[in-house]
Every structure is written in C-alpha cells, then in structure tokens.
C-alpha cells in the first residue's frame, strides 16, 4: 500500500507536467486547429532564460518570473511571426509550419548557445526530500504537484470567470460567431498563445529543476509525450488533455515500478501499447469534443 501511494505521488508529479504541456497544446489547437510542435522549444527557451538569469546573478524567484515572461513573449512572437500568416490554412500547412519553427529554434539554440547541456544551479533548498508519514517525496516533486494543481485551478477560474476566458471557450466552439460579438480574432488567438506559453514555461521550469540542465533538444521528448496525452484525452478538449496527461504519467510510473527488470528498456513501448488500446476503443479520445469549428 505504501509503495503504491509512493508511486501515486510520483505519477501525480510526472503526469502533472505532461498535463500542463498537453493543456498548452490543446488550448491552441481548440481555437485555431494548430498542433504546435514548437511547444517543446518554448520549454527549452524558458530553461535557457532561467539558466542565464541565474548566471547573471538574479535570485531564483526572479529568474523564474523572468523565465515565464520569456516563455509567454516567445509564444506570442511565434504566433505573430510564423502562425498568423498561415491562419486558416489547412491542418497540414499549420503542422509543417510548426515543425519548421521547431527546427529553426533548435538550430539557433545549438549555434548561438551550445549543442551541449548547460548546468542550471537550482537552489539547494529545492533538492531536499520531504517525509510525510511513510512517504518520501522530493521537494521538487512536491512543488511540481502543488504548482500543477494551482495552475489547473487558476486556468479554470480564468476560463469561467473572465471575459477573455469565456471568449476563448466560445472561440473553440465557433470562432466566426465570436467575432460577431465584436471580439477581435487576433486578441483571442494571442491570449491562447500567451496561456500556452505560460503553461510551457511552468512545465519547462519544473522539468529543468528535476534535470538540473538545459540542452537544445530538451523539449522534444516531453512535448511528444504531451501530444500523446492530448490525443488520449481527445485533441482539443482541455479537460481531456489534463486527464490524458495524468493517465500517461500514471501508466509510465506504474510500468517503471512493476515491469520485470529485463523488460524495463521497453517501458515506453508498453506505455504506447496501452495508449493504442485506449484509442482502439475510443478513437476520438477519452473526453473528445463533439465537433471542431474552424476559423
């Protein structure tokens, strides 16, 4: 039982990061039908921002704020420079554009910063272990669970209590009619990217805090996992993305814990197999939206 509870906490921590990333993908997809594969590079750019902020002597909390600011700015720039010109184009065009953005950013990171991982000096206070009864939890894992829950709660309040949030939910349903309410298409899309950037930034900082380094390809794997999570949940569904993220985290942690050692190298293969079996029964995803109205 204790071992199981311990694994559950691990799953919450990992799944929470996937959930934040999947949510970032879903927020943008639900509104403009773009699967943003450059989402991972938003994580990476946040990692570099925090890294350099610390190197330049900023205290950790300020570095975190700087990192989040850079993440949101980068997301807004991506939208303005790369995605706005192709808005309303076919899904394939949007997808290829996002691959291009991702590839360009990776090359820039490699050439302008470094192809090798740069260590990030995370404060020692964050590397401790918290003991709750029989359970041991890394400080960073605990923070990651709390931050994830706070982000989900905050986003939920934003979407249901503010005009901008309601406009985003309405835009996901029927963008053309939202414009008939006098709300500017560009501001709604920009809000979606800013939120997606914030979510990627938070996930990026949690990721870097656990690994202690940043490299140009850092965002690739987590965003692939987030994409899988978003698909499990039903692409475009926000609650689906969260559910998919936690489910994928849970599956990975349980497999890691209970697979026989000889099979451990195949952990991801088993995880994907489980995902495939979920999709065999619910090809539209667990919490799919009924229809998707494009711009």
């Amino acid at each position: 039982m204790e071992i199981f509870l311990q694994q559950l906490l691990n799953a919450l921590s990992l799944g929470g990061t996937y959930a934040l990333l999947a949510l970032g993908l879903a927020v943008v997809f639900s509104i403009i039908g773009l699967i943003n594969f450059a989402h991972g590079e938003l994580m990476t750019v946040t990692g570099y921002a925090v890294c350099f902020a610390l190197i330049w002597g900023m205290p950790f909390p300020l570095a975190v704020i700087a990192g989040l600011g850079v993440a949101m700015t980068a997301a807004l720039l991506m939208e303005r420079v790369a995605f706005r010109p192709v808005r309303g184009a076919s899904g394939t065009t949007l997808l290829l554009t996002s691959f291009a953005v991702s590839a360009i950013l990776r090359v820039l990171f490699q050439n302008l910063i470094s192809a090798r991982p740069i260590p990030v000096s995370i404060p020692a206070s964050l590397s401790g272990v918290v003991t709750i009864g029989p359970l041991h939890l890394g400080m960073i894992q605990l923070i990651s669970i709390i931050v994830t829950l706070a982000m989900l709660l905050g986003l939920n309040l934003f979407l249901h209590r503010t005009i901008a949030g309601r406009a985003m939910r309405a835009a996901a349903e029927d963008f053309a009619v939202l414009r008939l309410m006098g709300l500017r298409a560009n501001s709604v899309v920009a809000t979606a990217f800013a939120i997606s950037g914030l979510l990627a930034g938070v996930a990026g900082i949690l990721w870097v805090a656990q690994r202690g380094s940043v490299d140009p390809l850092m965002g690739a794997l987590p965003v692939l996992k987030a994409f899988i999570a978003a698909i499990i949940g039903g692409l475009g569904s926000l609650s689906g993305a969260v559910a998919g993220g936690f489910l994928l985290g849970f599956i990975e942690v349980i497999l890691q814990a209970y697979l026989p050692e000889s099979l451990l190298p195949y952990r991801d293969a088993f995880a994907i197999l489980l995902v495939i079996s979920v999709l065999l029964f619910r090809p539209q995803g667990l919490l799919a939206r009924k229809t998707l109205v494009k711009l």
């Binding site: 005009i163 309601r166 406009a167 939910r169 309405a170 349903e173 029927d174 009619v177 939202l178 309410m181 006098g182 709300l183």
Partner: peptide, 18 residues
C-alpha cells in the same frame, strides 16, 4: 449558433462584452 457549452448568461455577457 449559440455557444452551446457556455451558459445562457455567458452567451449574453459575450454579446455585450465590447
């Protein structure tokens, strides 16, 4: 074309938002 997943009130709020 009402916003089906939003409440009646939210539909009205968006109508008058700007």
């Amino acid at each position: 074309r009402v916003f089906a997943s939003l409440t009646v009130e939210e539909n009205l709020i968006l109508g008058g938002a700007k």
